[in-house]
Design a protein around this nucleic acid. Structure first.
Lengths: 227, 227
DNA sequence: TATAATTGTTAGACTAGCCTAACAAATTTT
DNA sequence: AAAATTTGTTAGGCTAGTCTAACAATTATA
């Protein structure tokens, strides 16, 4: 299995984020990839040809790009490494959850299967990183978490918004105002027995929401589902 | 403080190993550096000019090279990172001591002061790596270890040969036969009360040596001197 | 000390990854 | 469906780090 360069790995990861991880999208455009990676479209173009030659992506002239089976496998490995390192930094080295990303961007490119397997073991096979994102296991599988609404979430748990039930403009405006969006981590700080208000923290900001609102927010909770 | 490339860091580390770490040598030749780093002299030549411009080495055309104060400081930081990572891999992730080097070669280039400080703390400020080499502290200082002879070493400790007392050909031949050399780690496995023979392990091989031999081997022991 | 051997340098070339500028194809808008 | 806009491609150039081949300086040897 050929070793990929730091840069090639970043392209695969970028395409992965823009397609597979973004719900129902399956292909990514050249400009889109360029913006995501902070390089120019011409640069991306060269790399797409290279990745196609290596059979890591599907790509045709003037067409959109998507990962091949092998490309996806590689991308998942990188994501796995990134998230394991983030978990390590947060849990073992006491980094704040917002400081881990930058360092993990570097650590994810270290080449050593043994290192990652041992790290996974050392961290006790975590299923989610400090941001609440799922960590693929050594086989590249993601544990599929059951969906529920925010009203059902336990106090103290960190969950992640994956959707909403209500689609009215009024509701969505409020969602937006709270800083909520797809994939946004939410922490449930407390529940008031008196009026069932729920205190949550979103992106460092605390809010108190009504049960009516909470039952419209669809979430998954890795904490609830740790083995 | 300018960030150095992966490659520049490796050159600094290489020059450091060939000069300061090699006892009484103070300068390294171009060919010598090339051999050490596995590249061609022409390549080294270009880099020497570049490192000179950056004031990291002293270098004159057709002359030998040595680190400036700043270059030395940088090299020591890299060595520190390397040895801390080796210690992490060995102590926390249960890597064998002969497996750690390769991975540490990659990890030593991760740029994050916070990461290294936290790692140092997490490992409880170790003073030597799994090979017995000293780890510079955050200020770049090496603890100077007291010298003693192998006969004084405690059972279970890992020490490192730093010299010999006897210089006869006969003795040195035997030293060589045991796989001993300057900087060679030695582990004291046991001492026989009966005849004072000492069981040691050198490079994975076990030997039983006489007290007469042991008292000619000068060592330092980081384990004995841990704070 | 003159010659041979070693060591170091230069010139020119290659690759990966990036850029800009000009252009071509595809898509959207009118 | 023609025009305008957006998206994607090509051509050519740059830098870092590598190489080979030819040459120059230094050092060792006869």
């Amino acid at each position: 299995m050929q070793v990929l360069s730091y840069t090639e790995e970043n392209y695969l990861k970028g395409i992965f984020k823009l397609t597979i991880e973004m719900a129902d999208k399956v292909e990514a455009g050249t400009n889109e990839i360029a913006t995501h990676l902070g390089v120019k479209p011409a640069t991306v173009n060269d790399m797409l040809k290279k990745l196609k030659d290596k059979k890591l992506i599907h790509y045709e002239r003037y067409g959109k790009s998507s990962l091949t089976k092998e490309g996806k496998k590689r991308a998942i490995e990188i994501v796995r490494k990134h998230r394991l390192w983030e978990t390590f930094l947060h849990e073992k080295l006491a980094f704040n959850w917002d400081e881990v990303h930058e360092v993990a961007e570097q650590l994810e490119h270290i080449q050593s299967k043994k290192l990652i397997d041992k790290l996974d073991q050392f961290l006790n096979y975590p299923s989610a990183d400090p941001h609440g994102d799922l960590i693929p296991n050594a086989k590249g599988e993601l544990s599929i978490l059951p969906r529920k609404t925010l009203i059902e979430e336990l106090v103290g748990h960190q969950c992640k918004m994956v959707g909403v039930k209500d689609n009215s403009a009024e509701f969505l405006k409020y969602v937006d105002k709270l800083g909520l969006s797809i994939n946004q981590p939410i922490k449930v700080k407390a529940k008031q027995a008196y009026d069932n208000q729920i205190d949550i923290e979103v992106n460092g900001k605390k809010h108190s929401i009504s049960p009516k609102f909470a039952e419209q927010i669809i979430i998954v909770c890795p904490t609830c589902n740790k083995k």
